[in-house]
């Protein structure tokens, strides 16, 4: 309801918004995705307790283990291992990559692209979201173009960035930032629009400065939205980094996968994929832990 205000609902005089008189008491406002998730997890912990957790994690491990077993069994019996490799071969390759130290430069390269791009994209997305949400009419001039860029498949820009910035770190970081910035912008923008207008009115009625309003109201209200954006951003950043490496690079996990693929070394491809998956899961878990800490007031 609060996010659906149209310009016609604004006061004719001065463009300030007129909150509906005798507004209903309903608390069911636009709920950011992070909030629903957070609540569900909180309830689950309380209701089911320890026995439920044991069953949950035992089941998860079983699903993963059985899948690997099936893969191992199928490889060489039902399917030519040349095409699908096998879990034991992939594990052996990973061990070899760690022992020889060949893994680290690739992993660090990708992590550097991922980290720098995610940081720049997140900061840029927050700045863009705040600017467009709080600049009134001027922001509305830019809004459709930002949304147009958002819907562009940005993966298609990777070759362009290679041409502009070469095959080094810059093109990868640019790619990652481009992937992340719009997801963050969109969440920040929607998050600001969904802030309870009474809270902003409360701050205004107390004559709070813009900076204090940001610190006490806007950023705390945005926290669940930013955490959602960060969760999406982790996935998008890895996609951006690996795609850019596939298009043109001399190091990184994407480069290792592409190189292995060129050599028809399927075990190498799967080893690269396994490392990327591990990185994604690690960061997703970290963001999850951060969410639970920051949203403990719920």
């Amino acid at each position: 309801m609060t996010s659906l205000r149209t310009p016609s609902e604004r006061l004719a005089t001065g463009g300030r918004e007129l909150a509906a008189p005798d507004a209903d008491m309903d608390d069911a406002r636009t709920v950011p995705p992070g909030r629903r998730q957070g609540r569900g997890q909180g309830r689950g912990r309380g209701r089911y307790g320890r026995r439920h957790r044991v069953l949950l994690y035992a089941g998860r491990v079983a699903v993963g283990g059985l899948t690997l077993l099936l893969w191992q069994f199928a490889s060489g019996r039902w399917v030519d291992p040349f095409f699908v490799s096998s879990p034991s071969d992939v594990a052996a390759r990973l061990a070899a990559l760690v022992r020889s130290g060949e893994l680290w430069p690739h992993l660090l390269t990708t992590l550097a692209e991922f980290g720098a791009g995610l940081g720049i994209g997140t900061a840029g997305g927050i700045a863009l979201g705040l600017a467009i949400a709080f600049s009134g009419l001027v922001g509305q001039w830019f809004h459709p173009y930002v949304m147009a860029l958002y819907s562009l498949p940005r993966v298609a820009l990777a070759p362009l960035f290679i041409v502009w910035f070469g095959i080094g770190l810059t093109s990868k970081v640019t790619m990652v930032a481009t992937m992340v910035i719009f997801a963050v912008f969109y969440n920040v923008y929607e998050g600001i629009r969904s802030i309870d207008p009474d809270l902003l009115d409360m701050a205004r009625a107390h004559r709070a400065s813009f900076l204090r309003t940001l610190r006490w109201i806007v950023f705390p209200a945005l926290t669940p939205w930013l955490l959602t954006a960060l969760r999406l951003g982790v996935g998008l950043a890895l996609i951006g980094a690996v795609i850019a490496e596939l298009v043109g690079s001399s190091a990184g996990l994407g480069y290792y996968i592409k190189n292995s693929s060129n050599l028809l070394d399927i075990t190498g491809v799967f080893a690269g994929l396994a490392v990327i998956t591990a990185v994604a899961m690690t960061f997703d878990t970290l963001v999850g832990a951060l969410s639970r800490y920051l949203l403990r007031y719920r």
Binding site: D196, M202, R207
Partner: peptide, 19 residues
């Protein structure tokens, strides 16, 4: 504009849920 010396108690508390 917004005057000093006027306190508004909102219909729905307008408390900050994170504080």
């Amino acid at each position: 504009g917004v005057p000093e010396g006027v306190g508004l108690l909102f219909q729905n508390d307008a408390l900050l849920p994170w504080r």
